[in-house]
Amino acid sequence: MTVVTTPPTPQRNRSLLGGRRVYRPNTKHIPVLATLALLIVMYSIGVYNYDSFGDTQVFLNIFVDNAFLLVVAVGMTFVILTGGIDLSVGAVIALTTTVAATLLTAGWPAGVVLPLVLLIGTVLGLGMGAVIHFFKVEPFIATLAGMFLARGLALLINRNSIPITNDFWTQMAQKRFRFDDGVFISLNVVIAAVVVLIAALVLAWTRFGRNVYAIGGNADSALLMGLPVGRTRIAVYTLSGFCASLGGVLYSFYTSSGYSLHGQGLELDAIAAVVIGGVLLTGGSGYVLGTVLGVLVLGLIQTIITFQGDLNSWWTRIVVGILLFAFIVLQRLVTRKAK
């Protein structure tokens, strides 16, 4: 599994005030722990009920199949930590794959196409961030506009699914990292793991990361405390745009195609993963590790439904809906108790 650092939890001062503090899990960790427990329970149910569910490869395939979602959800984590939301990510994936496939088909070299599509998503994110900050537009509205824009552009370029036959793309798609006992992960997983690691480090150890938490805690205070609120806010949407386009690239590796209808509703999956992972929708609390667990929960539900075989895949949605509801209620309870 990926190694993720949570922000450093300082060791408790044991002698402080004669042991007045009794150990109990930090309220900030409760949602993450709950998700972890849920994950373990679900996995045990799967292993118990279905043959070969316990194979390592089955577990690794959750990462292989959801690497792009993980990358997108990491970007979304930053946005939600500031108390915002980014609805454009699914459409950015569609735009990225469509542009990449179109240009590759037209014979552009991969070395140009790859940076270009990453730039498109990043600039779109920057634009939305700027609109949100300078014109005081609600993130919901600004990114909704971004979503229509990106999806519309993708549809304008090509309505049909375009297969990608570029050598570099095919190589990347087929690249496997094999381990001793025959199990493997794809390149996508490695990229996603690197993204997760960097994000976790940034959030826990850098000023930018802490400013993200501060803004989510109280943006007005953050401003009065002299923190660069505007710059940070624009940066998180830019980052989310970048993650979305990187997710799009991974998605095009994964499907070897570009299609303007890719990633429909994916923004909601990403938001769901982040929330189930224990990030507070109002901002200011949560960890990248939680997001990883959230993505795993979503992937595991799909896997279980696949193994069950006779269930409609829409059950995934129903279960996700119920979980989302449960976790939002849990967040309410935890934050209320903290007060």
């Binding site: 850098t206 802490r210 805690g217």
Partner: peptide, 24 residues
Amino acid sequence: NLCPNLSVAENIFIGREPRKFGRI
């Protein structure tokens, strides 16, 4: 005007945290 979700220490120092190589 502080951030309730951060630690006491962070609230005192955020924006001017002691850093080494950019790491808090």
